[in-house]
Computed example of a mutant assay.
Amino acid sequence: MTELSKKGLRGEVSVLRLYLLRGGYLLIVVGLGMTVWPDAINRSGSWELMEGVVQCMLLAFWALCVLGLRYPLQLLPMLIWEMAWKTVWLIIVALPIWTSGRMNDSTMDTVSACLLVVVFPFVVPWRYVFANYVKKHGDRWV
Score class of each variant (00 low, 15 high):
Arg22Tyr: 01
Leu49Ala: 07
Leu115Cys: 15
Leu16Cys: 09
Gly23His: 04
Thr107Leu: 06
Pro38Phe: 05
Leu32Pro: 06
Pro121Ile: 05
Tyr133Met: 12
Glu51Phe: 04
Val15Trp: 09
Trp81Arg: 05
Leu26Gln: 05
Leu59Gln: 07
Val111Ile: 15
Pro125Lys: 01
Trp89Gly: 07
Val111Leu: 07
Glu12Phe: 11
Cys65Gly: 05
Gly33Lys: 09
Leu27Val: 09
Gly68Gln: 03
Trp89Asn: 08
Leu27Gln: 09
Gly24His: 01
Phe122Leu: 14
Leu9Ile: 11
Glu51Thr: 13
Ala40Ile: 11
Ile97Cys: 01
Leu76Arg: 09
Gly101His: 03
Leu75Ser: 08
Phe122Ile: 12
Gly33Val: 02
Thr107Ser: 11
Leu73Ala: 01
Val119Asn: 00
Trp81Met: 07
Ile92Tyr: 14
Phe61His: 12
Leu116Pro: 04
Trp85Gly: 03
Val111Arg: 08
Leu58Cys: 05
Tyr128Asn: 07
Gly24Tyr: 00
Leu9Met: 05
Lys135Ser: 10
Arg17Tyr: 04
Ile97Phe: 06
Val129Lys: 01
Arg22Gly: 01
Cys65Tyr: 07
Gly24Pro: 06
Gly52His: 03
Val124His: 07
Leu95Cys: 11
Cys114Asn: 12
Leu58Tyr: 07
Gly33Ile: 04
Leu49Tyr: 15
Lys86His: 02
Pro38Met: 00
Leu73Asp: 01
Leu76Thr: 14
Ile28Ser: 01
Asp39Cys: 08
Leu76Met: 15
Phe122Arg: 11
Ala131Arg: 09
Gly52Ser: 03
Lys6Gln: 12
Val53Gly: 02
Ser112Thr: 10
Leu59Met: 10
Val129Ser: 00
Leu116Val: 04
Leu18Arg: 15
Thr35Lys: 14
Phe130Val: 14
Val118Ser: 09
Phe120Glu: 02
Val15Asn: 12
Ile80Arg: 14
Glu51Arg: 11
Gly11His: 06
Gly33Cys: 06
Thr110Gln: 12
Thr110Lys: 10
Glu12Arg: 15
Asp105Ser: 05
Leu95Trp: 15
Leu116Glu: 05
Asn132Met: 06
Val119Thr: 10
Leu67Trp: 13
Met108Gln: 13
Leu90Gln: 13
Val30Ala: 01
Val66His: 02
Ile41Gln: 08
Pro125Cys: 00
Arg70His: 13
Thr110Pro: 08
Gly33Met: 02
Ile28Leu: 12
Thr87His: 04
Val119Cys: 04
Val88Ala: 03
Tyr19Ala: 07
Val54Ile: 13
Leu20Trp: 10
Leu116Lys: 04
Leu9Cys: 07
